[in-house]
């Protein structure tokens, strides 16, 4: 992999604690010596948080569709009506 991708992998390994103790020590030393590395770590965390949010939205849509299937099922009409009556 090219250098920039190896840097992303090193940050990934640090964030997910996949590095060896020796590599962790080297990485921590780099964090002290290279202030830009801290910004790069923050940016990667932010990116991974967005991936999590994207993934959760996809799963929520899947859950909603499963619930809607129950609501659309003619066999479940009485079940849904019973729940809706709770809110009157």
């Amino acid at each position: 992999m090219r250098t920039s991708l190896n840097e992303l992998k090193a940050i990934d390994d640090h964030l997910f604690k996949r590095s060896s103790p020796a590599d962790q020590t080297v990485f921590q030393a780099r964090m002290i010596l290279q202030p830009d590395l801290r910004n790069s770590i923050a940016l990667q965390k932010q990116t991974l948080w967005l991936v999590e949010q994207y993934s959760r939205r996809a799963l929520k849509a899947e859950i909603k569709e499963a619930c809607d299937q129950v609501k659309r099922d003619p066999c479940e009409t009485a079940f849904i009506a019973r729940i809706r009556r709770l809110f009157r």
């Binding site: 991708l5 932010q46 990116t47």
Partner: peptide, 25 residues
């Protein structure tokens, strides 16, 4: 390799949008 290329691409988008870490974390 593709995973890290994608990570790089998304990171770059985040950076270009000039959002600060505090904006949504």
């Amino acid at each position: 390799v593709q995973k890290y290329k994608c990570l790089e691409k998304v990171r770059e988008t985040v950076k270009q949008k000039a959002l600060t870490y505090e904006d949504f974390l």
